[in-house]
C-alpha cells in the first residue's frame, strides 16, 4: 500500500510533507507534555522495528497479495508515539526495502500515521463508549476496532489519492478497476490486523497492564 516515487504529482508530494510536518510537530508536542517524555521510547522503538519488518510479510488474498501494515496496532499501543514511529519506519522501508519512496514519504506517513492516531483515540474511548461491556471484552473489542479502522481508513486514503491522480495517458477504466480490486483485497487484511491487535492487547493486559495506560 506504499505509494512509490513517480506516481503522484509534485504538488501532492509537497502537500503530504506539509501535513506530515504538522502531524509530527503536534505528536512531539503532546509527547513533550508528559511527565517523563522518554518513558515510552523503548516500547515505541521496538514497535517501530516490528512495523519496519511487517511490510515484508505477504499475505495472499486472491487475486492480489497484500502485506501487513500494522499502523492501527501502532496507534493503539503507542498513542502519540505512533506518528513518529511510522515516519521513521517508512523512511527505512523506502531506503532499505524499497517500499514507498523518498519523495512520497510525506504522503505515505500522513496516509498511515493519521489513521493510527485515530485508532489510538478509538481505543482510548473504550472506557467512555464501551461502559456497558465487561472488562476483557471491552478492551479486546476496542483494540480490534482500532486495528481494523486504522488500516481501513489508510486504505481509503490510498484509494482516493490514487484514483484522483490517474495520469491522462493511462486507460482510466482499467486502472480504476485494478485500484478497486486492490482496495477490496485490503478488507480481509484489515480484519486480520484487527484480530492481531486485539490478541496482542489482551496479552499485554494480562502480562503488563500498565503498558496500555499511555
Amino acid at each position: 500500500m506504499h505509494i512509490p516515487d513517480g506516481i503522484l504529482p509534485a504538488q501532492v508530494c509537497a502537500a503530504g510533507y506539509a501535513i506530515t510536518g504538522l502531524a509530527t510537530w503536534y505528536s512531539l508536542r503532546q509527547i513533550n507534555r508528559r511527565p517523563d517524555p522518554t518513558a515510552e521510547i523503548p516500547k515505541a522503538s521496538l514497535l517501530t522495528a516490528a512495523f519496519f519488518v511487517a511490510s515484508s510479510i505477504y499475505i495472499p488474498v486472491p487475486p492480489a497479495s497484500v502485506h501487513l501494515i500494522l499502523n492501527g496496532l501502532l496507534g493503539v499501543m503507542l498513542g502519540y508515539f505512533a506518528f513518529p514511529a511510522i515516519l521513521i519506519g517508512l523512511f527505512f522501508q523506502a531506503l532499505v526495502i524499497g517500499h514507498g519512496g523518498i519523495t512520497t514519504l510525506g504522503v505515505n506517513a500522513a496516509m498511515m500515521g493519521i489513521p493510527a492516531m485515530l485508532a489510538y483515540h478509538i481505543f482510548q474511548s473504550r472506557n467512555t463508549l464501551g461502559k456497558v461491556l465487561t472488562e476483557p471484552t471491552r478492551t479486546g473489542l476496542f483494540a480490534f476496532l482500532g486495528g481494523t479502522l486504522g488500516l481501513g481508513i489508510a486504505a481509503l486514503i490510498f484509494l482516493a489519492l490514487i484514483i484522483f491522480n490517474i495520469p491522462a495517458e493511462l486507460d482510466a477504466g482499467a486502472e480504476r478497476a485494478a485500484i478497486l480490486a486492490l482496495s477490496i483485497a485490503h478488507v480481509p487484511l484489515a480484519l486480520i490486523e484487527g484480530l492481531f491487535t486485539a490478541m496482542l492487547v489482551l496479552f499485554v493486559r494480562r502480562v503488563k497492564p500498565e503498558l496500555l495506560e499511555g
Binding site: 522518554t38 521510547i41 523503548p42 516500547k43 515505541a44 522503538s45 521496538l46 517501530t48 522495528a49 519496519f52 519488518v53 527505512f92 532499505v96 526495502i97
Partner: peptide, 22 residues
C-alpha cells in the same frame, strides 16, 4: 540487503534497550 535490514532492526532494538536501562 540482509545486513542493512539487520542493522536497522538492531538500531531500533538498541534504542529501546538504551532508554529502558535508564
Amino acid at each position: 540487503r540482509g545486513i542493512t535490514i539487520g542493522s536497522v532492526i538492531w538500531g531500533l532494538i538498541g534504542t529501546g534497550l538504551f532508554f529502558a536501562r535508564g
